[in-house]
Structure formats: structure tokens, C-alpha cells
Design a binder for these strands. Structure first.
Lengths: 145, 145
DNA sequence: TCAATAAAGGACATTTTTGTCCTATTTATA
DNA sequence: TATAAATAGGACAAAAATGTCCTTTATTGA
């Protein structure tokens, strides 16, 4: 609807990892893919990206897998995941695809998008992984289906 | 950022056609593509879609081209163009790509998207082609660059 | 030290989106 | 009525996004 598939999987994966990390469990790609209902090899690629951007932490070898430090769950905001995968066009791009579109030379939708974009931006910047993971933990929200 | 390329071109084309129709001018695909800076043959396809959906009106043959009736400029809302080209996933789809995501079984972002989605929906439903075309006419907004 | 396990990463395959080209159809007007 | 101008539409091409497979690298534990 708004994010690429890769970004959707990335967010779902990060939330799932955070949830399990709250229990001290490290999780494998195959478990993640199973639990968030995503293609496994593609999910692995996305997790590599998240790892390179220090959003999740990976450990190789037996007993290895992915995890997120408790402190990072507060630090890591949705905006960081989205930026790592989809870039920042969601903030900066013009709604009609013009290269140059700003207050001084706006496209016909520019003003109409200002509030929407600003709300989206605020939401992404202020929502932490911890908040999302605890919603899941309490059983208020779901990652599958 | 939010719409497909096809939809961006479609909106820009429709606004340009509306603007010219206010002057009683019918416009060709090549003029449209030139003026909104879009690939001509691809734009032609999109205009066919808009024509089939009665968003623009096409006339074949010499002196032919695309036009929009003055009354239709009020009737046609952005939402109709977006729906004709991108479908309605922008309203109905889940932000995280879940098939089933609603108030009773929400994804972790469901509540956070409600206002944003609702504002977007309201904006698209309430913005008419006439409004967009007159902004252009007055020189307040731009379709190129 | 060796075998097994897990992520990293490169190469490739498929699908979707974006874009082009050519022919057919319609229609105005000379 | 013939010509030319315009859209309609089908077939194809290119690029980007999505997805798979296989080999390499790191690490654990027997």
C-alpha cells in the first residue's frame, strides 16, 4: 500500500525478532520466514540489509541467528527500517513524481500532501520496535494472515 | 512515493487535459506527453484506461484528441483516477501486507495507519480535477520539472 | 580437529511494471 | 472518395522488483 514488499517483510521480521529477543531467544531465518509468512531466501537478503544497518544483530554458526538488544528496541524506529530498505523517497518524493517540487514550485497536489506526509513521517519517526513488539506480546496485534 | 508511475502520469495528464479544456482546446497524446514530461506511448495506454473509465473523453481522427467536459471536472475526483489505474489497495490494503488485517485482527501498524489512511482517502475523494486545473491556470502550481 | 549449523553473498530466475512499436480503426476535410 | 490525422489496441522489449539456489564463511560443540 505504501511500502515495498521487501520493506513489509523487513518490518515484520524486525518486530518478530524483537518479540523473541524479549524472551532471550535468538531466531533463525527459517523460523522468521515461517512466523511472518514470507519467502525464506528473500527474507534472508532483507535481514542482511537490516544487519548492515545495525537494525538487527546476526550471529553465525550453530545456536546463531538474529536478535535485537533490548536498548536497540527503543532506539530503532520504523523510520530507520523504512529508510534502510526503501530509502527516503517516502518523505522527500513528490506525490506526482516531479523532480523539483517544493513550496516555491509545487505540483498541484503538493499542499494537499503536506499534512499527510507529515503525519506519516511523525508516526514512523516516533514508533519504536519495542512498542510494536509489546503489542504483539500482549496479543493485541498479529503478524500473520 | 505513493502512486505507481502510471498513476502519476494519469493524474498529470488528466489535470493538463482539464486545464486545456477550460480554454476549449482538445489536446493530442503527443502534446500531453510533451507538457507533462512523460513517455508518449506509455501515456497513450494510460489515457485509454482513463477513457474507458469515463474520466477523459477521446475523439479520433483529425482535430481529435482528449478533452474533459466542464461538468466532469467537478464530478471527477482524484480518487476515481487512482482507483482506475492503481485499484483500491491504497484504501483497503494492510500497511504490512497482511491479507487479513482489520480492527479485530490488526497488524502492529494498523491503528497507526488509520488516521493517515483516512486523511489520504478524504483528500482524494474531495479533490476535483477542476480544483487542480484552476491552480495550474492561475500559475500557483506546475506539472513539469 | 571435524562435522554440523547458521548467516553472507553471488548468480540466476521469475514476475511485474514501465515503456516501445506497429497496425487497425475512426473521422475530418480537401 | 481519398488522404491524412488522430486514438485503439496488440505484441513485444527493457528495467525493476521479487524470489530462488548454491557456494562460502564463521562458529559451536562433540
Amino acid at each position: 500500500m505504501m511500502f515495498s514488499k521487501a520493506c513489509e517483510y523487513g518490518i515484520r521480521a524486525a518486530v518478530y525478532i524483537a518479540l523473541q529477543s524479549l524472551d532471550g531467544r535468538r531466531v533463525s531465518v527459517s523460523e522468521i520466514a515461517e512466523e511472518i509468512d514470507s519467502p525464506i531466501a528473500f527474507t534472508a537478503k532483507i535481514l542482511q540489509q537490516l544487519n548492515r544497518n545495525n537494525i538487527v544483530h546476526s550471529v553465525k554458526g550453530p545456536t546463531g541467528g538474529f536478535e535485537i538488544d533490548r536498548e536497540d528496541m527503543d532506539t530503532v524506529k520504523l523510520s530507520m527500517i523504512v529508510k534502510a530498505i526503501d530509502g527516503d523517497k517516502i518523505y522527500t518524493g513528490c506525490g506526482l513524481g516531479l523532480k523539483e517540487c517544493n513550496a516555491s514550485k509545487p505540483c498541484p497536489l503538493h499542499d494537499k500532501f503536506i499534512d499527510i506526509r507529515s503525519n506519516l513521517r511523525t508516526m514512523l519517526i516516533s514508533t519504536s520496535l519495542f512498542e510494536l513488539a509489546t503489542g504483539l506480546e500482549v496479543g493485541l496485534t498479529y503478524l500473520k494472515r
